[in-house]
Design a protein around this nucleic acid. Structure first.
Length: 528
RNA sequence: GGGUCUAUGGCGCAGCCAGGUAGCGCACCGGACUUUUAAUCCGGUUGUCAAGGGUCCGAAUCCCUUUAGACCCGCCA
């Protein structure tokens, strides 16, 4: 028998946290506070993947605290990053700011102090809305305050060694020629155009020349300025291949997750941290990127970018947390169409947590309960909430477009899906309503209507003028079908196809009465 | 050139990361109740879990090799 001991709450988060602790013990470092970090991009529209990095790091923080340690999440916005291309939907006027640090570019919408803060805020707002707590830091402040100056100095003194190692490890040769430091050109404010070739160690200054370069296969003109930049005063930033290491060391970071796209950079940074800066690199976990659903290009505009804000129009904060906490390995194609199952999966987890669903396998039970706790940020509710199947709510929302909230609520009560109206259900109806408006296109099924059905439809149209009670309508429809040699099943199906565009639907009598008999009669008469 | 991930009944997928009876949704088909319509209930294709090897009492799950596909890196961040 393999004695599988369960760590913490049995999830991958607990496992990672415990690995981290083991490592810290081996290294013999102080465990007074274990900082975890998440890097936020500030140059593009922050999508759910960027949010995931921070949410998962926060999960590790929670796990560490759960194991009795103090922890903190640093959310670091790299707002010295240069603008490389204008994101979809942003004004062309940004063109003149290409290659400038995003924190020095004015916010095109005027609501934040810079373009960079505008972007960061979108992500921070997402974090706030799902309940993630963090300590926010900005690259521009970090450099301005000289927090990294010692690390920069050490790195530049060892630039030859580093350049060779980078070439060795990842085959990138540029740092054998240039220093891994980009000054912001004192003349034109641009990054990357100013290439640094020499470090004057005694004065802590780099010499640079601002010349033409290529960014994202686009030419960017340099201004020709030749200057010197003081690494502790003047603006500039380390190349990414070495910057993490400097930050990890300066901030004493013990954990950082990363996406596979920056795997090489992390590899180099780990080496720089260990060998050059003499400070063991943080513990890592690699995750796959979220991909668009293969083949389904929703729209070329903003539609493809899945932001937290857009997600929250359709799904609860918990559905996002569930998505991000349920697993970390594996490539994932992600789309808004995943929301309904995540919404329902959360309810299922809640049922397991409160013992309403039996799970035989002990390890799986613990894991499911643990996942539920993490999705609730380790502060699970005392009582289970009222569950309504999300897809059912979407179906009902699709049918009732006017007075949606009230009418859907009434239907849910009629169906016995809920016992009384609650604010939580109202919210759910709102989410499901948004979802149905945005995605639930009417399926265009071919409607086959033969002459017998046509005849029956005519009779029904006339009958609808007279009938009043929902139950009578129901019976009338059935009778009409029978007396006209139409299978009731087929007749009902046809009616649903005409009225709803689907082959099934709610009980038809009350439903017709809900929509309005005259309205239905009118619609049906178009098919007779 | 380097790297990562994916491969499971007709379709879509879960399970794999901490090995212990191969599952879910949908589709389709058959049956039951026979005004049956949010329908509900029962049953169905006996899945070589991509191929091969290894570890183990035991492998879809861990390790190695192979095949196919996707993605990332080799500008920059």
């Amino acid at each position: 028998m393999s004695d599988t001991k369960i760590i913490g709450k049995g999830t991958w988060i607990d496992k990672l946290a415990s690995e981290l602790l083991e490592r810290e013990k081996t290294l013999g470092r102080s465990t007074d506070i274990l900082r975890v970090e998440s890097g936020l991009g500030a140059s593009g529209i922050p999508h759910i993947g960027s949010l995931g990095d921070a949410v998962r790091a926060y999960g590790i923080k929670l796990a560490l605290e759960n194991l009795g340690y103090k922890s903190e999440l640093i959310a670091y916005s790299d707002d010295l990053d240069g603008l490389r291309k204008i994101p979809e939907g942003f004004p062309d006027s940004l063109e003149e700011h290409i290659a400038k640090p995003v924190s020095l570019i004015p916010d095109p919408y005027g609501c934040h102090d810079s373009y960079g803060m505008h972007m960061s805020s979108i992500l921070l707002d997402g974090l706030d809305r799902v309940g993630i707590k963090y300590e926010f830091r900005r690259a521009i402040d970090t450099y301005k305050q000289g927090l990294l100056k010692e690390q920069i100095h050490t790195i530049l003194q060892n630039s030859v060694k580093i350049g060779e190692k980078i070439s060795d490890m990842v085959g990138q040769e540029k740092y054998q020629k240039y220093l891994p430091y980009f000054p912001v050109c004192a003349n034109c404010n641009r990054l990357y155009t100013a290439e640094a070739t020499e470090y004057i160690s005694g004065e802590k200054k780099v010499k640079y020349t601002c010349h033409d370069t290529e960014i994202s296969s686009k030419k960017v003109k340099g201004c020709g300025y030749v200057g010197e930049a003081d690494i502790s005063k003047d603006l500039g930033k380390l190349a990414w291949k070495v910057e993490f290491a400097a930050r990890w060391t300066a901030f004493d970071i013990r954990f950082e997750a990363y996406g596979k796209d920056i795997m090489d950079s992390v590899k180099v940074n780990d080496w720089v941290s260990d060998e050059i800066l003499g400070s063991p690199h943080p513990h890592h976990v690699k995750y796959e990127m979220f991909l668009d659903k293969g083949g389904k290009k929703i729209s070329k505009s903003l539609g493809n970018v899945i932001t937290a804000q857009k997600w929250l129009e359709f799904g609860s904060p918990k559905s996002i947390l569930l998505l991000l906490y349920k697993r970390i390995t594996g490539a994932r194609e992600l789309g808004f169409e995943d929301i309904p199952s995540l919404m329902n999966e959360y309810n299922e987890l809640e049922d397991i947590y409160f013992g309403r669903i039996k799970v035989d396998n002990q390890a799986k039970l613990i894991k499911s309960k643990g996942l539920y706790e993490y999705v609730n940020l380790l502060n699970p509710p005392k009582q289970p909430s009222t569950h309504v199947n999300y897809r059912l709510a979407v179906e009902l929302a699709k049918i009732f477009k006017e007075d949606r909230e009230q009418r859907v609520m009434k239907k849910l009560l009629d169906y016995g899906a809920i016992k009384k109206a609650e604010p939580e259900i109202e919210k759910l109806i709102e989410l499901a309503g948004n979802y149905s408006n945005e995605f639930d296109q009417q399926e265009k099924s071919q409607i086959t209507i033969d002459h017998t059905i046509k005849k029956a439809l005519k009779i029904l149209v006339n009958a609808l003028d007279a009938e009043e009670e929902p139950e009578d309508i129901q019976n009338t429809i059935y009778q009409i079908a029978k007396s006209n040699d139409v299978q009731p099943k087929d007749f009902f199906k046809t009616l649903y196809q005409i009225i709803l565009g689907t082959s099934r639907g709610p009980k038809i009598g009350p439903f017709i009465s809900d929509i309005g008999r005259k309205q239905v009669a009118k619609t049906l008469s178009e098919y007779t």
